[in-house]
């Protein structure tokens, strides 16, 4: 039986962690993602950019208490991709 290929955008630990966190919340800012994933600022920033380029997350840059603040939220495309990824993973595990 042929398995669906895993989405290369999501099949990366940090990008998958970011999307998994965003699935359960309406939005999360950069510091929250940094704390929860344990990633470095640079790596997190790069992976957020890749997810944004893929159209999986929406990134809003603004100010909070006069400091730059980046807020991320999952797009419908991101949610769809995540659901497809989970289904593909389960197919792998069940066969």
């Amino acid at each position: 039986m042929a398995f669906a290929p895993l989405d290369p955008v999501l099949h990366n630990q940090l990008r998958l962690a970011i999307v998994s966190l965003l699935v359960s919340v309406e939005q999360a800012d950069f510091n929250h993602l940094l704390e929860r994933t344990g990633a470095t600022r640079g790596n997190l920033s790069v992976q957020i950019s890749k997810l944004k380029e893929a159209g999986y997350i929406q990134v809003t840059k603004g100010l909070r208490d006069n400091y730059p603040n980046t807020v991320c939220r999952l797009t419908p495309e991101g949610l769809h991709a995540f659901e497809g990824y989970v289904k593909a993973i389960k197919d792998y595990l069940h066969h």
């Binding site: 630990q13 998958l16 998994s20 966190l21 965003l22 699935v23 359960s24 919340v25 993973i89 389960k90």
Partner: peptide, 12 residues
């Protein structure tokens, strides 16, 4: 992958 997803969703 599945463990990572579960862990992150649980944290969120």
């Amino acid at each position: 992958s599945l463990r990572l997803i579960e862990s992150m969703i649980s944290q969120a």
